[in-house]
Computed example of a mutant assay.
Amino acid sequence: MGASSYGTVKLTALSPGAGCACKLPLSKLEGLFASLGSAGLEAASGDLLIGAAEGDDAAVLRLDDERALILTTDFFTPIVDDPYDWGRIAATNALSDVYAMGGRPLMAVNLAAWPGDALPVEMLADVMRGGADAARAGGCFVVGGHTISDPVPKYGMAVVGLAHPDRLLAIDQVTAGCRLVLTKAIGTGVVSTGVKRGMASSESVAAAVASMTTLNAVASEVALAAGVKAATDVTGFGLLGHLHRMMRASGLAAEIHAASVPLLPGAVELVAAGFVPGGTNANISHLADFVTIGSGVSDELGVLMHDAQTSGGLLLAIEDDPDDLLNELRDRGVPAALVGSASHGEPGRVTVV
C-alpha cells in the first residue's frame, strides 16, 4: 500500500467483510430476485436494450440509432488500508461495468458512507481524490455525490456511460465454440484477506493494487475492434461464478483450463496458508452443483477459480481465432490469457481441468 498520513489507522479493520468487495452472495442475490418477481426488475423492451432481468453488468437505454446510455453503480468497504488506493480501486471497479458493456464512461457521482466521529473527514477526501484520479484517467467527469454517516466506511460511484446500440457486449451472446479470454490475473480476494491479517507480502500487495487500479478501457476497446460480442467483468462472484452466469444466459456449458488462468504473485501461497475470504467460500458453496473440478487441479487452484475479485478483468468470448485478439491485448499492455472455451451442454455447467 502507499504511505498513509493517518498513523496506525487500518481501514480494513473497520470492514467486517474485508477480503473482497462484499457483494451479496450469488445464492442470496438470486433469492432476492426471485422474491421481487417482476417488481423493480424491468426486462429489455423497446428502447431498454438491457434491463435488470437480463442479469448483465449494467442497464442500457437506446437514445437513438447511434447512441445508447449505460447506467451502473458499485461501492464497497475498504479492502486496502491506504485511503487513496481504496478510492482508485473503487472507482476503477465502478467504471468497469461500463467497459464490460462495450461503452465509455461519461460522468459519475460519488457514493460514500463515513464514520465521521471515528475517522477524520480528511481521510475521506483522500479516498475521493483517488476516485477522481481514476475516473479522470478514463475520461470520466466526477460531478458530485451523496454521503451518509455510517459506522462502516463505504465508497464507490454511480456511473453513466455511452455506447453504440449495435456494438454492445453482453453476457448472453456467447456461441458454441467461442474461446474464452481473461484480461487480468486473479487472486485479489485472497491478497486482500492477507492484507487484513498482516500476512500479504509487499510484492503481492503491489501487484494486486496495480491490477485493481488498471482500467478495463483498453481491453474493451480491443475487444470491440476484434468483433467480440459477449463479455463480462470478473468481480465478486469470481471467475467461475461470472462464467456460470454467462453460460447460463447463453444456454451453453464451458471448460476452463486452470493452469492457463493468470494468478497474482503469492495467491497460491496465501490460499495454502488459509487466507480465503468469506465471499470466496460462499462462491464455492453456491456453485457446487454447477462446477466440476478435475482431479488434476490442485485444491489451491480450485479455490482461486472461485476467488471473489475486486476490479477484475474482462472475460471475453470470441467466435474467431483468438490469436489476433490476444496479440493486440498483450501489445497494448494487457496481460490477457486464453483460459477456456464454450460448448453445447447443460446451460451454466462449468468444468475445470
Rank of each mutant, 00 (worst) to 15 (best):
V228F: 12
A317K: 07
D117T: 12
G156P: 03
G131A: 10
D126H: 11
G312H: 01
E203D: 14
R167H: 11
E54D: 00
T92Q: 01
D233I: 04
D307V: 13
L63A: 11
I256P: 08
N283D: 00
G251D: 04
V9S: 11
L11Q: 05
F290H: 15
T193L: 15
S202Y: 02
S295F: 10
L11T: 03
D324R: 12
L111R: 07
V9H: 11
A207Q: 05
I284T: 11
G130S: 10
T193F: 09
D233L: 05
G37K: 00
G266K: 09
D117E: 14
V159F: 02
S341L: 13
A21F: 14
A308H: 07
V297E: 11
P322D: 06
S298Q: 05
L315M: 08
D289V: 08
L41G: 04
M246D: 05
G139D: 05
V152C: 07
L124Y: 04
S343G: 12
V60E: 08
A317E: 11
V339Y: 06
S38W: 10
R104M: 11
T214D: 03
F237H: 07
A308T: 13
D172S: 13
A219F: 00
D321A: 14
L11W: 04
V181F: 02
M247I: 07
S45R: 14
T72L: 07
V152L: 09
H306L: 08
A90L: 10
M128E: 14
T73R: 12
N216P: 03
T193M: 15
M212A: 14
G187K: 05
A39R: 14
V190A: 05
V303P: 06
L180Y: 08
S201G: 07
S285G: 12
M212Y: 02
E269M: 09
M247K: 01
L224G: 11
E255K: 08
L314E: 01
E221W: 00
D126Y: 08
G302V: 06
G294Q: 03
A259Y: 09
I148K: 12
G17P: 05
A118S: 13
Y6S: 04
S295L: 13
I293R: 02
V143D: 08
G348A: 03
F237V: 03
P165C: 06
M123N: 02
A249C: 09
A34L: 13
L270G: 02
A44L: 12
G156F: 05
A230G: 10
G156Q: 02
W114Q: 06
E54N: 01
T147I: 15
L162R: 10
S45K: 13
N93I: 03
H164N: 14
P16V: 07
P115W: 10
L24S: 10
L162K: 10
C20M: 07
A13V: 10
V271R: 02
V271D: 02
L314V: 00
H244P: 06
L301N: 09
C140N: 03
C178R: 00
D323C: 11
A253V: 05
H164S: 14
N93D: 15
I186R: 04
F141C: 12
A68R: 01
D166P: 04
F275Y: 15
V334T: 02
L316W: 02
C20S: 15
V353L: 14
A308R: 08
P25N: 06
D65H: 12
D81E: 01
L71I: 14
S343R: 13
V209E: 09
M247C: 13
A225I: 06
D85F: 04
D81G: 05
